[in-house]
Design a protein around this nucleic acid. Structure first.
Lengths: 214, 214
DNA sequence: TGTACATCAGTGAACGCGCGTTCACTGATGTAC
DNA sequence: TGTACATCAGTGAACGCGCGTTCACTGATGTAC
């Protein structure tokens, strides 16, 4: 039985699969530390402890590598959101959302977890890099749009679950406004556009919770 | 009477001053169109119709040029905010805010103007570029922090004016939350993280106005 | 009003450098018989 | 169980290219006397 294989992409051995992961780790670390413009293949290869030419064994071009790094990082964020909300996209049909846990998190908990996640400055730097890349590169823009589509879908489902009497349009608008507030909060709290304070965190949480349920 | 002069910076003639402005225009246009990584001095000089070597007559290094572009663009945004709110920072002491017009704009108007401004996709691209640059370059980070400090100061003064009974801390927290919501809205409405819709705009406006006065 | 001179405006060629990519190559690993 | 062979893992040197910067230079403009 011969397997379908796409192009010249090599089949990964166990060792190769580990190596691929370690290259993605190295690339993400350099990308966050130095920004896209300064994250050269040489810097990434150095971080990973391999030679430059070897990167192309796993990622033929630099664009392939960067795209893979961002896809993995954004998927990780969605995974955390799924755990926090107790919801999950149906892998077969990502427009359907299932409830995975009996006990539903409440709005304040979801907001607290989302804001706590932003306290990792490296993650915020990665997001800012992602936005800038998406504004220039259509392939990355597609990855980013898909991420936010799912992000909003989770929040919308969460709102709908708590307020079954609200229309789908209202739940969607509130979910989009919630995401806007949270992404803007990342900027204001990260040192880029402002800095954290107790009063700001309290006001942000009040607004975010209100969007989810009031 | 001899004038103080800093370093080798040339004195600008009328013609030179116009040229400097046209170089900033060209640089801003290329920066928005291609992003920082692809906005080379050759591309900028080409856009301006001069030779590469000539750029350094006005801006000794690329960093000087980019910084000047961003400073000018951010100042322009603050200028529009001053007009919209009918307030103005005291040039002598920027922590003091003066009322410049008798008739004060209401919160809904301010929100409408701010959201309308975001409908220029080039401006949003510039902002995203600014955030990414600020995360890497300390000199630009300082410019950006100063911009948001003033931005928040305007909004805080506007809130305080409408709600004199609120504490300074509350006005400040609401102003910061307002800015977070608005900057996040730029991402959600620009095509980077989402797209505009009437329902979203309505929900955003409701939240933003509420932050300013309810 | 003219002239001399300092400064500004702008050119054009060259520089060294780091970049992403290419490619021929050597060992290591897995697999078919 | 052994052997042959295909594929994978990883090396290392070289490539052409575009980059920011440097610098010696020529005209244009303003100004002092």
């Amino acid at each position: 039985m011969s397997e379908e294989r796409d192009g010249g992409k090599p089949h990964l051995t166990r060792q190769g699969s580990l190596r691929r992961t370690s290259l993605l780790d190295a690339a993400e670390s350099v990308l966050v530390a130095k920004g896209n413009a300064d994250a050269s293949l040489r810097a990434i290869a150095g971080e990973a402890g391999v030679r430059v030419g070897h990167l192309q064994h796993y990622f033929p071009t630099r664009a392939d590598l960067i795209k893979a790094v961002l896809e993995r990082a954004l998927d990780r964020s969605l995974e955390r959101l799924a755990e926090t909300t107790g919801l999950r996209l149906d892998p077969a049909d990502p427009s359907v959302i299932e409830v995975t846990e009996g006990s539903r998190a409440d709005a304040a908990e979801v907001v607290a977890v989302v804001l706590a996640e932003q306290e990792d400055p490296q993650l915020v730097r990665l997001y800012v890099e992602v936005w800038a890349l998406a504004a220039r590169d259509e392939e990355i823009a597609a990855v980013v749009r898909e991420f936010y589509r799912k992000y909003v879908a989770y929040v919308e489902a969460f709102v709908q679950q708590g307020r079954p009497e609200w229309s789908a349009d209202l739940c969607r608008a509130r979910a989009e406004t919630f995401v806007a507030l949270v992404e803007g909060a990342a900027l204001m709290r990260s040192g880029i556009a402002g800095s954290r304070s107790g009063a700001l965190d309290e006001q942000l949480a009040r607004q975010a919770v209100g969007l989810l349920r009031d």
